[in-house]
Write a protein that binds this DNA or RNA. Sequence first.
RNA 1: GGCCUGUUGGAGAAGUGGCUUAACUCAUAUCCCUUUCAAGGAUACAUUCAUGGGUUCGAAUCCCGUACAGGUCACCA
Length: 553
Amino acid sequence: MVTNEQLAELLFPEIHETVEDLEKRYPPRALPEGAQVTRFAPSPTGFLHTGSLFTSMISCMSAKKTKGVYFFRLEDTDTKRTVEGSAQDLIDQLAYFGIEADEGYNPKGDIGAYGPYKQSERADIYKTVIKDLIIKGRAYPDFCTPEDLDAIRKQQEAIKALPGYYGEYARDRNLSNEERVARIQAGTPWVIRFYSNGNHDRKIKFTDVIRGEIELQENDTDVVILKSDGLPTYHFAHVVDDHFMRTTMITRGEEWIPSTPIHLDMFRALGWKPPKYAHIPAILKLDNGNKRKLSKRKDPEAAVSYFLEQGYPAQSLLVYLMSIANSNFEEWTIANKCFDLDRFPFSIKKVANEGALFDQEKMNYFSREVITAMPLDIEFQQVCAYASAHDAKLHGKIEENPEYVKTILNIGKQDKNPRKDYAKYADIFPLVRYFFDDEFEDILAAGLPFNPKLGKDIVKAFLVDAKEEMPFDTDESAWFNVIKEIGSKHGFARANKEYKENPDAFLGSVSDCAELLRVAIVGTNQSPNLHQIMAILGKDRTLARLQRVIDSL
RNA sequence: GGCCUGUUGGAGAAGUGGCUUAACUCAUAUCCCUUUCAAGGAUACAUUCAUGGGUUCGAAUCCCGUACAGGUCACCA
C-alpha cells in the first residue's frame, strides 16, 4: 500500500518546506481597513499593450486611492513565448506613464517582502503547495501524452460530450498510488493535475467588483497545475501567488471570467480565502462593422510605443484611458480645470462593463487640451525628449537654437484663449518649419500658394510697397492699419464688410491682401498671427524674405 | 455547439420604476467672432433606450422570449 505521502515524496523529494512555513514567511499584510492590494502581472512576451496599460492604470489607482499596495509580478511561466528584454521594456514604459509599483519584480533586484516576484523563481513555492495537495488527495500525476488527450477530445466530439479532462474522461485521476509509483519509476513523463470535486450541474456565484454578481457552472475539470517543464500553469500560479502575496483584489482582463470557477475551486481546496475579482473590459476597435480587441498586428495604437513615437505626452494617453475607465472623469477635468489623475476620485465600481471603442479623435482632443495646459518649460522639455528620439529634423533645430524653438512653441500659449495647434509632438515640425530659413527655401522652391485670381504684377506691387512702408516697432493694430492702407492703395477693401457690400469695386478684401503678405513671409496661407511671427523672425529676416519673394516674381 | 457577458445617438456615456420633453463630452453641421489657421461663442443632431411580449396608473429602468455582438472551453497567459 503506497500512501499519498510516499507518492508526494517520490514526486518532490527536494521539497522540505510546508505550506505552514510559507504562511509564516508571507504573513498577512498590516494594512488599514479598506486598503486594497492590487497587482499587474504581465507575461514578458512583447511590448506593452494599450489594454495592459489600461488595466495597470486601474490597478495602480485602486491601490493608491485606498492607501494600499500595488505590485508588479512577472508571469514568465511560458518559456516558449518569452521575449528577451521585454520585462525591462514593460517596466520602463510603465514608469514612463507614471505607473510605478510599490514592490515587485525588477531585473536589478526585487523590491518587497513577498517575493520573488518572478514566477520562474518561485518553482519551489508551487511545488510545496502541490506536495500538500497530493498528500490531501487533491492533486495527482497524470501520464497522458498529447496524443492521449487528443483521442479523448475526439471521443467527446463524436458523442457530443463537453470537451475537457473531467470525470470519466479523466483517465488517470483514479489510478492507484501503486500504479502511479510504477509509472514514475518506469520514467513515464507526467504532469500534475488538480483533483476537482466540482459538479458541472451546480452553479457557483461570485461578486465581481465591476459587474456585480456572476453565476457560472462549477468547475469539474482536472486542470493541469504543474507542466512537464516543472513550472505551474497560470491557473495555479495565480492562486498560489495571489494568496501568498496577499493580493486583495485581482484586476485582470474580462477574458478570465469563464475560468474564475477553476480558481475558486482551488482556493476552496486549499482552504484559502479567495480575493475579490475585478474583470476589466478590453479596448476595442471596429473592423468591418464588428467590434474586436485592439490587435497588435493590425492596429498600431494597440502598442503603447506607437503613442510615444507619435509624441503624445504620457499624460494624454492616461487622461484618455481614464475617461474610458470612469466616464465622469471628463466632467471632472472641466469642472476642476485640471488633468491630475491623483486628485481625481477614481472609483473602480464605475468602470463600464463593456469594452469601449478606441477613439482617435477623442484622444487627440484630450491631448490638445493636455498640451495647452502644460507649462512652457515642461512642454519644451518633453518636445526635446521626443525630438531626440523620434524627430530628427526638429531635433536638429533644437540643437541649433533651443531658445528660438521655445519661443515658437510659446506662440499663443499664454493667451486667455490659447492656441491649440498640437495634438502630438509629431504635429509640430510641419506646422512651424517656415520659421527656419533652409526650410523656407524648400517651401519657396515648391512654389508659393498665391491667390491665382490676382495677377503677378498686383502681388509684386503690393509686396514692394508693403516692404517699404510696413512698420516694425508698432503694436499689432497700428501695423495692421498700415497694411490696410497699402492694400487700399492697390485696390483692396479696408474691411471685409466693405468688400462684401460692393465686391465689384475691389480686387479683393483685407483678407486677400493680408494673405499675400502671409504667403510671402511664411510660405503658406495658414499660420498663427502674422504680427507675432514677424516679431519672432525679426525685421531683417522678414524684409529679406520679402525681397527674396519679390525677386522671384 | 455548451456556458458566460453585453446591447441607450456616429463615438464615450449618465440614468436602476414617476424629478428625463434621455445629462455631459467628443465628432459632425450651420451661424457668430475673425487678416488666414488653431481655437472660442451660439444653435442643431435619440419622439426614443436591439427586438417582440408581459407586469404597472406609469418602464430605458422589473420579468420572459428572440436577434445580434464579444468572451471562453490548452502542459498560453
